Amino acid sequence: MNKPLASSFEQIVNSRRAVRKYEQDTPFDHEAVRKAIELATLAPNSSNMQLWEFHRVISSEAREQVARCCMGQSAARMARELVVIVVRPDKWKKHAHINAGKIREAYKDQNDAKARRAHGYYEKLIPMLYNNDRFGVRGAVRKLLTFLRGLSRPTVREVSRSDVRVSIHKSAGLAAMTFMYAMKSRGYDTCPLEGFDSRRVKTCLGLPGGSEITMIIGCGKGTSDGVYSERFRVPLDEVMFEH
């Protein structure tokens, strides 16, 4: 009999740890990584813009180069594959166009009220939010306008260039967590890394200047000493509140 879905998910969540050492002599299924990335692309993301990329570092030479950029951390050095989660805010026009096209396919009646709202979202609102200049002047103007509007009504206030950047990274973080759970469901361990030289990693991977790295994830079959300590969390009443 199959386990209830909730029970299986709880088991995955409870067993997932940041594992920093991986077996080197056992076979590693790189296809499991591809399938986990497929699932990660189903993660919720802001406005369905999907401004993320998953760069797989597979060859031993490439892994060695990226591991050096991760300060030689064992989770990178011993990983059987590294997955670099990258955000691409520079692709917003292309992805907005793709979303608008999908809406045109979905609605036979283009004069339908829902279709008009959806078109307006990707053809007017998204460009207004994502079209930013280097110095953030457009974002500052949007901040001022939303402040004035917010004096009389509820208003979304996170509209600056930095706000949009945070939103894109949040979406990438959701995808990264989905990826790590998917890897655990396939019997593999992961470790998300933030300690790395982002400029050098971008050079290693040939990433464009407009890209940013959210995190690097080491993958493999964890060793018995790959978890450095017992799991610790602050008491629940420190982080959960009822209103």
Results as ranks from 00 to 15, higher is better:
Lys3Ala: 09
Pro4Met: 03
Glu10Cys: 09
Val13Gln: 06
Arg20Tyr: 07
Thr26Met: 06
Thr26Gly: 04
Phe28Val: 07
Glu31Gln: 13
Ala32Tyr: 02
Ala36Arg: 03
Glu38Lys: 08
Leu39Ile: 04
Thr41Gln: 09
Leu42Cys: 05
Asn48Ala: 14
Met49Asp: 09
Met49Ala: 08
Phe54Asn: 09
Ser59Lys: 07
Glu64Met: 09
Cys70Pro: 08
Ala76Trp: 11
Arg88Trp: 10
Arg88Lys: 15
Lys94Val: 13
Tyr107Gly: 00
Asp109Asn: 14
Asp112Thr: 01
Ala118His: 02
Tyr121Ser: 02
Tyr122Pro: 00
Lys143His: 08
Leu145Thr: 05
Ser152Asp: 00
Thr155Ala: 01
Glu158Asp: 06
Ser160Asn: 02
Asp163Asn: 15
Ala172Cys: 15
Met180Thr: 11
Met180Glu: 07
Tyr181Ala: 13
Met183Asn: 12
Ser185Ile: 05
Thr190Phe: 12
Leu193Pro: 12
Leu193Asp: 13
Glu194Ser: 13
Leu205Arg: 10
Leu207Gly: 05
Pro208Ala: 11
Pro208Gly: 13
Glu212Cys: 10
Glu212Arg: 14
Ile217Cys: 10
Lys221Thr: 05
Ser224Thr: 15
Ser224Pro: 01
Gly226Ile: 14
Val227Met: 13
Val227Trp: 03
Tyr228Gly: 06
Tyr228Thr: 08
Pro235Asp: 12
Pro235Cys: 10
Phe241Ser: 07
Phe241His: 11
